[in-house]
């Protein structure tokens, strides 16, 4: 099947061809329905996405401009307060001292680690024999397949204070005192565990994508570089990396988006559901304000802030995609 597709792709190149081919000879007979047909086909999907993604996006902005609590929810009345929620949000020291740093620093660190680990694994995979590569790839797939919920519980289990295996191991290495260490109490170690969890869950995507890219680097180029006497380190930076720059850019941006809005992995860790105020990030804060405090207005404002930050990253993503080609 893949072969067929590949061959077909060859024949239908340039890629645009398939799309332009839509209207065919003979269509003029029923021009009206022809013009309608794509919209008919699109309608159900557009309705679902419009109703459940676009409209709520507008709605969340609207809610962020209201004092929206239980009373408003039950009565359906609206109480517009302008930018009050944003004023409160931006004037909140916790945002600048705790929540934003948690969100941003965690995302930067987790993304850097994810991409580096993923790339290293890809570079390892590409050098392996097919059988070994198959085994390692399967193992990586297994890591990728662990749902965020269960993955988080395993890491929590591993680091549970006192008797967690990781805590015991650190104790044996003299790096921590098992009797006193609580990895979830301090912000740094809390996010350290979260980073491990997120990197473990996220690197397979990077590894397999980069591997896919590596496999397209023509052998001649690598051989030429070897002939020129370039070492592995230089070969990577002067040949591989420039050729795969778009791949790296995309995995980085996507990982950034995912790590920015990470919720489940934080919420399910001890103290992550709002008890430990020091470890809130934008996602969990928005949720706690809304569903534990009934302050949907403020929660929505936090959600909007998160969305805006993500949109900025998305713009970067789109520019990468659109720079060299068109849709």
């Amino acid at each position: 099947m893949t072969d067929v597709v590949t061959t077909l792709r060859e024949r239908t190149r340039p890629g645009r061809g398939a799309a332009t081919a839509g209207p065919r000879p003979g269509r003029s007979r029923r021009g009206g329905t022809r013009a309608l047909r794509p919209w008919l086909l699109l309608a159900p999907a557009l309705l679902v996405m419009g109703g459940l993604l676009l409209y709520p996006l507008v709605r969340v902005v609207a809610i962020s401009l209201q004092d929206f609590g239980l009373r408003q929810l039950v009565s359906g009345r609206t109480n517009w307060v302008g930018l009050d929620n944003y004023v409160e949000l931006l004037g909140n020291a916790d945002l600048w001292r705790t929540v934003l740093p948690n969100t941003v620093v965690f995302a930067v660190v987790a993304v850097a680690l994810t991409v580096v680990v993923g790339t290293l694994v890809a570079l390892l995979l590409v050098r392996l024999q097919p059988v070994t590569r198959g085994i390692v790839t399967t193992a990586i797939m297994l890591a990728w397949a662990i749902p965020a919920v269960t993955g988080t519980y395993v890491w929590v289990f591993l680091f549970s204070p006192g008797d967690g295996l990781a805590v015991q191991a650190l104790d044996a290495l003299g790096l921590a005192d098992a009797a006193t260490a609580n990895p979830f109490a301090s912000r740094v170690s809390f996010y350290g565990v979260a980073t491990l969890n997120v990197v473990h869950h996220g690197f397979p995507f990077v590894a397999l994508t980069v591997l896919a890219g590596l496999l397209t680097v023509p052998q001649e180029i690598t051989e030429a570089a070897i002939v020129d006497g370039a070492g592995a380190w230089r070969r990577f930076w002067s040949v591989t990396f420039p050729m795969l720059r778009p791949v790296f850019a995309v995995v980085t941006v996507l990982s950034t988006i995912w790590d920015f809005k990470v919720f489940t992995q934080i919420y399910l860790m001890p103290g992550g559901d709002g008890v430990n105020r020091g470890v809130l990030n934008l996602g969990t804060w928005s949720y706690v304000e809304s569903f534990a405090q009934n302050r949907y207005g403020l929660g929505a404002a936090i959600a909007v802030l998160l969305t805006v930050l993500l949109l900025l990253i998305t713009v970067a993503y789109l520019r990468l995609l659109f720079k060299e080609d068109e849709l």
């Binding site: 996006l57 969340v60 928005s286 929505a300 995609l321």
Partner: peptide
Amino acid sequence: MILIIQMVPVEALVIPLFIQ
């Protein structure tokens, strides 16, 4: 639109979707 909408953090939509 499909591309952009893919980037919408669903975590941000809990509140309006809950109300809807």
